[in-house]
Simulated assay, not measured.
Amino acid sequence: MKKLIQFYPILFALLMGFAGCDNMGEEMPMNASTEIEGPLEVLKRGTLSNQSGAGTRGTMELLKGPTNKYYIGLSENFTTKFSTGTVTVYLSTSASLRLNESGSFMLLGLANRPGVHFFELPGSLDPKFTHGIIWCGAAGIPFGNTLLE
Rank of each mutant, 00 (worst) to 15 (best):
T93W: 08
S75W: 03
E101W: 05
F119V: 08
L99G: 06
F78K: 00
G109D: 06
N77F: 10
T93S: 06
F119M: 06
S94C: 01
F105M: 08
K81Q: 03
N112I: 10
T88H: 13
G109K: 04
L108D: 12
G115I: 08
P114L: 09
F119Q: 08
G109P: 09
H117V: 07
A111C: 07
F105C: 02
N77E: 15
L108I: 07
S92H: 08
P114W: 12
T93H: 01
P114E: 14
F105V: 00
L108N: 13
T79Q: 15
L107Y: 00
S94D: 14
L97K: 01
T93L: 01
T84Y: 02
T86L: 09
G115A: 04
E76H: 12
K81S: 11
G109F: 05
T80I: 11
A95I: 04
E101R: 09
L99D: 02
L107R: 15
A111F: 11
T80G: 07
S104A: 13
S96W: 02
S92I: 02
L91A: 08
E76Y: 05
L91W: 11
H117K: 08
S75L: 02
L108R: 10
L108Q: 11
S75P: 04
S94M: 04
F119W: 04
F82W: 15
R98M: 03
A111G: 10
L97D: 07
G115P: 02
G103A: 02
